[in-house]
Design a protein around this nucleic acid. Sequence first.
DNA 1: AAGTGGTCTAGACCACACA
DNA 2: GTGTGGTCTAGACCACTTA
Lengths: 245, 245
Amino acid sequence: MGRDGRLPTSGFKYERIADVIRRDMLDNLLPNDILPSERELADQFGVSRMTVRAAIATLVSQGRVYNIQGSGTYVGSKEVLTKSGALTSFTEDMVARGLRPSSRVICAQRVAATGMIAHRLAVEVGTACTHVRRLRLADEDPMALENVYFPAEVLPLEGVKLAESLYDQLAESGNEAFRSEQEISAIVLDDETAELLEVPEGAAALVVTRVSSTKRGRIIEYARTYYRADRYSFMTTVERESGER
Amino acid sequence: MGRDGRLPTSGFKYERIADVIRRDMLDNLLPNDILPSERELADQFGVSRMTVRAAIATLVSQGRVYNIQGSGTYVGSKEVLTKSGALTSFTEDMVARGLRPSSRVICAQRVAATGMIAHRLAVEVGTACTHVRRLRLADEDPMALENVYFPAEVLPLEGVKLAESLYDQLAESGNEAFRSEQEISAIVLDDETAELLEVPEGAAALVVTRVSSTKRGRIIEYARTYYRADRYSFMTTVERESGER
DNA sequence: AAGTGGTCTAGACCACACA
DNA sequence: GTGTGGTCTAGACCACTTA
């Protein structure tokens, strides 16, 4: 009867089943090949159909398979597996590209929130905030100029280790970033910023304005970052609204 | 007992329940307020708990509520509801902003796929493709210069209504766009493009390179579009990988 | 007509939060 | 300890695709 259906020894059943399907089936099939039906899989693994459906749901959300009602479950195309829009930090980004990230702190101070910053952080004007301005480098090359603001209540200036990941430090203080809203635009760099980024005057840059919040919806960060357009671009994956099929 | 739990008369139960929760509960609660427990809701609506969970799952995916295991389901923050990363067309975008979109066709021709285009469309070099170059306008102002390529097999040049939505025409031919991978970068516009977009020479633009595919993973479009940076920006929402909490 | 995924039920046990 | 969301079961019916 082919696959024996033995499962790894940790996690929930549906996770282990998703792992087995990924390792033992998807690797041996081509895109658009059909998978066994949910009822067959339930039999093979000795679980209920709802559990198989939970396993398949995780694979669908990863773009590894897709469903067609009344027809079956099929292997997704390989191209899709280019990491969709997961929240990543500059540090993670660079490591993933095989570069060594670092920071050069330009200034770090306690400030009172002005109109724009207070608005974005959803705090009262005048609220104490921490402001950090850093040049982000990859293998010693400047890649981005970052301006980060967060409420001092979330992380006071005195508590910040400036050279290390701010996200990690926010998480340690119980404010783990869960979701970011980003606005991406483009500008021509002013001379001062161009010099910091070591690009010619008049060069283009990506401007990313980001507001990050915890799972509970608490806003923990407002950042405006200028990325060298010659070295950096953003990948995003968008999908059709849940709609019909 | 307050809410009576009457349901609208169409769609699946869990959709109707999600609608009722959205209209009758979320509108009357503040962010981080707690919702009734799943078991209570199941009683109120006279359905099983799994059905309530399906309803809540849709609200979670829309960012309207969030769960904390062992604690409860809570109202999400309002800020999040700024439309996450749903696939939208230029036309939809402009309509959503209250602008009247239009197109000016610059050229439309049948071409043989060269290396780059063949690679992005995942077809053989030399495959017949349709190439459309259009200036996209909003209320008569140029907003973007669009270069779209797709296999002639998907939509031949003769079949294209150039002034109308290409997405709609692709959908009509059975190739509905389901997912797009986009790369967003920035450049300084060359003089010719700047003139078309009616911006000064040396102005910055967003460059969006997009590959769209159907649910089945068939690539139906490769597009490279230059957006005026002074009029256009991209909003994206990113979330932490599914992980623990 | 047969088979598929989509929805739904009425239970159950678990891990976790919180008082 | 009580209540919560998370998982899981063993069925059922429906809407849809496919032949």
